[in-house]
Design a protein around this nucleic acid. Sequence first.
DNA 1: GTTGGGATTG
DNA 2: GAATGTGTGTCTCAATCCCAACTT
DNA 3: TGACACACATTCAA
Length: 542
Amino acid sequence: MPEDLPEGYYLDNFKYLLDFVVEKHGHLLSEPEYRYRDQFASASENAKKLYVRLTNRKGPHFRQDKINYPEINNLSAVVSELIGLSLVDSSTPTLEHAIALCDKKELSQLEAFAAWPKSCRRSEMVEQLIATGTCNPIEELDLPVIEVLGLEKLLVYRLLFFGNFHQDMTEFVLHELVSPFEAYNLSDESSAFSSRSIVDLTIELKLLSERAHEVIDTDETGDEIAALIEEMPFRPDDAMTARRFDRLLNRVARQLERLDRKEGALYVYKLTSATPSRERQARILEKLGRLMDALDLCEQIYDAPLDEEEWEFSLSFGQRLARKHQLETSLPRNDKVPPPQETIRISRVVERVELCAVQHYTDAGETCFYVENMLFRGIFGLAFWDIIFAPVPGAFFHPFQRGPSDLYTSDFVASRSGLIDRRCADLLDSDQLRQRVLYCYEGRYGVANQFVNWQYLSRELLELALAQIPAEHLCKVFDRLLIDLKNNASGLPDLIIFGESGYRLVEIKGPGDTIQKNQERWFRYFNTHGIPATLVNVEWAN
DNA sequence: GTTGGGATTG
DNA sequence: GAATGTGTGTCTCAATCCCAACTT
DNA sequence: TGACACACATTCAA
Ligand SMILES: [Mn+2]
């Protein structure tokens, strides 16, 4: 049964968010956005409750006859009040919205479908309505529809509060009922945005991103995409906004590549910095026959790579380019040592190869877990918990963060280097490591942390890992994680197998599956540090 | 009649 | 057989409700 | 609402 939330819970959260933003980021709000809060505050309690309920839903249009909240009586009076306050509107929605508000049964009552069989699909009727474009079902059936107003202002409040678009009011519920957030101290006077113009740019990019998503799905020629590119702003200086910009343009450019518009794609990639921009550029340059440009770019990447993946690309692609076209290059060879491999022959008891392998090792009397990235990420998150949530200025600006805002930038290590160095030294002592991790596991169980997935991190697994993996090995893993928390938190082996004393890591490769680049890099690292890791090829018996 | 993907709810 | 590109499923917080599809 | 790992197809160079 669902647990009970306090009376007026949603309303309180809503008020809290508005007040929080006005107090902490008020200087970033426009005059109408300020007024929005007062507008809301002037409504009666019931009207506020209804407004908040509706803003938490899909919207902005709702069928008034389908709104039913037990705590709100006299709905029509409340709606009238909200209309008077300009928080709700009652005009007829556009055709597209109107159709979405009617179910199949209602649509079939329309004149246009009187002759249609009962077995026709709703999607066929929708198609027909959009094609003719004259009949608005809400109008014809005279259904009561209301539109919630002020959502664009509320979006600004949410953006200022969370610093992103993907979190919303459900975070409050998650905190209350599911997985609480760490009770870190918020930094004073800190915000994701340093000026209003950055806020506006972020919103502009979001709107462009939504349109890009749409166009990428529908546009077969690339003409619409090209038109959209014309509307793009200049690349922002602010690092966070620049990242959003790059992600959007890289995505658009990739689609241009798929549509075989190489020049256009190249032009768009040149506007961005984030990976894989330069890699894609090099590939396009080769296809365009601009071999020297491609090779030059590889050398540029090699001199200043943004991450290891890009660095490796510059070597392998540059070398291949030079060899294929007999070009001179200063790029060194990238010699790879293949990881230790073995082959097992097992029967396919379930669909997933990894689980069959777990069964295989378990049958052989070993203790085996299918962990992928989760084990080492989890141990890392526990061992560095207090550092992750350390009150660094600007790191925490709202109560629902799974980690500091700079976690995936190089600033994270830079601004905590003292703490991290000391912790790494302490953790070399296996008793300290064990105690710290288990103590944190007990004390913080269930608390949201970017690195810890509590579902798959059992105490049994954790204790085995801490007992059988030497502290030096774990610290080596931490070292590599800390080099690049974003990219190095993936590519870890599928399985961990515990023997009587000791352990080994196993990457399972089914038929037709080959090792990926990030996995290869971990294997190389394991190899140089004496961490036991094997690549196991699976063949199906019978 | 069932089911699968959503939206909604706490 | 590498090196590519592309498509898919699985995580999502979990239970419930609704509704549009269908030899599931 | 992506990130991640895998599955499968195509291409191209030894
Ligand atoms: Mn694998």
